[in-house]
Design a binder for these strands. Structure first.
Length: 344
RNA sequence: CGCGGGGUAGAGCAGUCCGGUAGCUCGUCAGGCUCAUAACCUGAAGGUCGGAGGUUCAAAUCCUUCCCCCGCAA
């Protein structure tokens, strides 16, 4: 039986932690990775030290030849790739555009691991997009690459349920495990996989918008649930943030403390905010503990609380610029001067 | 040499400019009050102030140097 094809010459292209899992899995499954492409080590971080990608470090330690072109626009780079003579190329979170001339080179083409169920969330940031949208299920797509952005024919998919507690970081880890398993499965029966590929439906296409600094900024006028999802979607990187007393505060985790509340029905042991609330400008107000009267029952809330456009959020994991990351509880205990401030 | 913040009790912070008793909010432990409480009151334990030198009668604080943590930017 010819189930294991002649795929003993694989080129792997990837940069992030997400791709590293796939690379490791491919090698552990016994495939021969003959070359690794990853993004150029570049000055980054404090002091602009040269940073190698995790994939670079792994390949280096494993003795796999590494190549880091800036792009594939030159004939030289294309020919260099051709000279490897690879049977198939696997791409996962690489970060460079692969032109058609390159896609045409390997006999069995390019295969991509994408962190969503295509055609939902095409684009660069599918994981935060799924959380932000409140999706209850997402997954992995293994596809044949074509020249479009995540438009290739689908080989296989894997499902993953999003539990509401999950942050992008956790989801990304689980998806990378799933992706690693799926790519190995695909490579093991490569010819069959390629034959069974089917076109994407053009009906349910959505795009995952690029993440910007501004899209990570919290709008406290939104509901507590919306803001909670924003926080989860950008945790731990790059981190949802707000500004308080002129300083940037990142929020890595939060939970809805009260989904809905009549803003007049509460008191706080620390200070009386009724005048602020009457002005309807309470969104973003930070408190450290409060007692609410919902219907006829008093509800005691502890921890670091933030009023939203609708409801109250409990901030669980925060970090002020320049300080350590800590629980909201500890943070607000030490920074009582921030109680009663309005974040924005 | 990219810009910047920080290291003080188990946690989070103030005090540092201008040297002179180690302080705050919590937590912990013990007791009290209350119908009751994530409320309140009383008391206790817990620190070689990141390390090493130096100046001084005296250093958390001033000088030199080293280590560690973090934000921005890329």
């Amino acid at each position: 039986m010819k189930s294991v094809n002649n795929v003993d010459s694989i080129v792997f292209m990837g940069t992030s932690d997400f791709s590293l899992k796939a690379l490791v899995a491919i090698r552990e499954a016994g495939f021969n990775v003959v070359r690794v492409y990853t993004q150029t080590p570049k000055p980054a971080g404090r002091g602009y030290a040269i940073q190698k990608s995790v994939v670079y470090k792994y390949a280096e330690a494993s003795g796999i030849p590494i190549h880091c072109p800036k792009n594939f626009k030159s004939v030289e780079e294309v020919e260099r790739f051709r000279s490897i003579g690879a049977n198939v190329a696997v791409v996962a979170a690489y970060g460079l555009i692969i032109p058609q001339v390159l896609l045409d080179i390997p006999p069995r083409g390019f295969i991509n691991i994408h962190a969503s169920k295509l055609p939902r969330w095409r684009g660069a940031a599918p994981i935060p997009a799924a959380i932000l949208a409140g999706d209850t299920v997402t997954g992995i797509t293994i596809m044949k690459m074509d020249a479009g952005v995540d438009t290739g024919d689908i080989i296989t998919m894997g499902d993953l349920y999003i539990n509401p507690e999950m942050s992008s970081g956790q989801l990304s880890q689980e998806l990378s495990d799933l992706g690693a398993a799926k790519i190995v499965e695909t490579l093991k029966k490569l010819d069959f996989s390629l034959l069974s590929a089917r076109k994407q439906s053009e009906k349910d296409v959505t795009y995952a918008p690029k993440i910007t600094k501004e899209s990570c900024r919290i709008d406290w006028m939104h509901s507590a649930e919306d803001i909670r999802r924003t926080i989860k979607a950008f945790s731990p990187e790059p981190g949802a943030w707000t500004e308080i007393k002129g300083h940037r505060l990142k929020i890595f985790d939060a939970e809805v403390a009260v989904a809905e509340i009549d803003k007049n029905d509460y008191e706080s042991r620390n200070l009386c905010h009724s005048e602020i609330l009457h002005e309807n400008s309470a969104a973003g107000l930070i408190l450290d503990a409060a007692k609410f009267f919902c219907v006829d029952k008093p509800v005691h809330l502890s921890g670091m609380l933030a009023f939203c456009g609708k409801g109250v959020l409990r901030l669980l994991d925060v970090q002020l610029a320049g300080k350590k990351r800590m629980s909201g509880d500890a943070f607000i205990r030490g920074r009582r001067d921030l109680v009663g401030q309005v974040a924005g």
